[in-house]
């Protein structure tokens, strides 16, 4: 079995977009889809391209409930950004394919999926969302 998304209702079926939520009454779009269904919330495919609005770097291995690699010797810091999807919302997401030192606010990025633990056997891999420079 190939790597699977870390959760249902995170990506669209073809993995080309994240699933956001739209409030039918106010028009507000947010992410992710709420855990419980509600009459005034509908799923919406979010834009797959946007720009970095802000970011930070996770420099130390997180504690539980983090399920990625936590060995302090080999831990690789990761970038956490808010990516502005124009006219929709700003999604919190990792950045991939770029070193922390090279990240700039305003840079263009596009959606992809990366394994939470790249060293895990393929069948155990969980895919999380990330954006990479265009």
């Amino acid at each position: 079995m190939a790597a699977q998304p870390i959760a249902d209702n995170l990506f669209t079926e073809d993995m080309s977009a994240l699933i956001g939520a739209r409030n039918k009454e106010t028009g507000q779009i947010f992410f992710p889809l709420p855990l419980t269904e509600s009459d005034h919330i509908e799923p919406v495919a979010l834009a797959s391209r946007g720009t970095v609005w802000t970011y930070t770097v996770q420099r130390f291995p997180p504690k539980t409930p983090y399920a990625g690699p936590t060995d302090p010797e080999t831990f690789k810091p990761y970038v956490v950004a808010y990516v502005e999807l124009p006219g929709q919302t700003m999604v919190e997401s990792r950045l991939t394919g770029i070193e922390p030192e090279d990240v700039r606010i305003g840079m263009e990025v596009e959606l992809t999926a990366i394994p939470l633990d790249p060293d895990a056997p393929a069948e155990d891999q969980k895919l999380i969302h990330a954006f990479r420079p265009v």
Partner: peptide, 9 residues
């Protein structure tokens, strides 16, 4: 959702 914690946010 749980994935938010598992993925390191």
């Amino acid at each position: 959702p749980n994935w938010y914690g598992e993925a390191g946010y």
